[in-house]
Computed example of a mutant assay.
Amino acid sequence: MRKLTLIMSVALFLVSCGSSNYSFKEQNVIRMAVDTPEYFDNPKMHSFDKECRSPLTDPRDGTEINFLRASWPVADYKVPTGKYGVRQGELLRVNCKTGEAIGIVKR
């Protein structure tokens, strides 16, 4: 429940504040992702980095997701169709600082 509240808060904040990247302003979260890990892993990431990395890995099963676009501190990643509830023509938005899934956006 705490994770869902945090995700919803971050999504609401991103939607209300907008972003400097036009595509991010237009691409709001359309629904929450399902069965995501607590965080996606990137062994090259350091806490002081201010860039989104690719690929990220699901530490539970090794699924890799690949970066397509970003506006710090979030990025949209291509995932295997059906994984995490992502359908064709959609991407998974991830918080680059924490590795937590935010939700699903249109590609």
Rank of each mutant, 00 (worst) to 15 (best):
Y77G: 03
D41V: 03
I30V: 13
N66D: 11
G82F: 06
E90M: 09
A33R: 00
R2Y: 08
G18L: 10
R53C: 08
P59D: 03
G18V: 07
T5W: 07
D61E: 13
R60Q: 13
Q27E: 10
Y84R: 04
Y22G: 12
I104N: 01
V29T: 09
A11N: 07
F48W: 14
T57W: 04
A101S: 10
Y84V: 03
N21E: 13
L14I: 00
I102R: 00
M8A: 12
L4V: 11
T63Y: 04
D76V: 06
Y39T: 05
K3H: 04
L14V: 02
G18K: 08
T81W: 15
R2W: 09
A70Q: 07
E26N: 09
E51Y: 12
F24Y: 09
T36R: 02
C17Y: 06
E26S: 13
K83N: 08
R2F: 07
D58Q: 14
G99R: 03
S23V: 10
D49I: 05
M32L: 14
S20G: 12
G99I: 01
G85I: 06
P80K: 15
R53S: 07
D35I: 02
K25A: 11
K50T: 15
E51G: 09
A11H: 05
C17F: 11
R69C: 13
M1R: 10
K97D: 06
V94N: 00
E90F: 02
V15D: 11
G85Y: 00
Y84L: 05
R60D: 14
